[in-house]
Design a protein around this nucleic acid. Sequence first.
DNA 1: CTCTCTGTCATAGGACTGTATGACAGTTGT
DNA 2: ACAACTGTCATACAGTCCTATGACAGAGAG
Lengths: 137, 137
Amino acid sequence: MLFQVNFKSGKPVYLQLVDQIQAAAASGALAPGEALPSIRPLAEELRVNRNTVAKAYTELESQGVIETLPGKGCFLKENHSPLRKEIRRKLLIEEIDQAIVKAHHLQVPGPEFLKLVEHRMEALEDKRRANEIEKEE
Amino acid sequence: MLFQVNFKSGKPVYLQLVDQIQAAAASGALAPGEALPSIRPLAEELRVNRNTVAKAYTELESQGVIETLPGKGCFLKENHSPLRKEIRRKLLIEEIDQAIVKAHHLQVPGPEFLKLVEHRMEALEDKRRANEIEKEE
DNA sequence: CTCTCTGTCATAGGACTGTATGACAGTTGT
DNA sequence: ACAACTGTCATACAGTCCTATGACAGAGAG
């Protein structure tokens, strides 16, 4: 498992970790029941404070993604699989609702909003592909 | 023109004002060239500091929504109408992109994302209607 | 000019947030 | 029991954000 953080991104380091671990859990790169890297070694490897990693793990536990046994370590929740989809939905719905509320405030009609969403999905997908190609060079 | 702020909402007061004025401008409740309430009286009416209103106006000016003439007052930009739609798009796209990026991080496939968006639009619309009815009682 | 209106800037207080340090408690293997 | 590992908590420091206060400068009416 390889994580990495970016200090200059403006986004808090502990949240970067949360995102990456969420993604790893969602994609199956981390198996249910599997142990996560323990706090101190991971912190050292990332050149980050122990408590920064600890905060990320705390956040993940409150989200029900991992389970932490003091003295033993942190593990991906066993029965995480059936909940996984629901958790992703919940996280995503928060973002989606924000966008819809904004559209309402700006008096953008529903159909136009939907069209805009589809348009941006294509645009971002193209951008992502361009980045992939760039990486290969 | 009636604005109102909520101190307990967690959202900064000056941003609440920005949203409300953006909405008023987008809906045409504020006509192009029309003067906005001047800072001090509005601040007094809202029981808010002068500089809080000033900060909202500064933000709106940097977004190109209003024009401020020191010593005279603040006005909705004259040639704002043709740009209005573009500005709304830009503001909305920021929110939409965040949601799409989140979906990608959570490995939610495009079609499912779109379905979720449609579902939430209905849900929020229902909620809005319920609030309307509640208000009428 | 003077008075009063307009917005602006410098500054500071208070709250919150992200990170860092040290001492602590539970678990495991020797 | 001891040592080496695990996560946890209290605390503190720094930076940022929002708001507040006071002094300032331009515009227009008298």
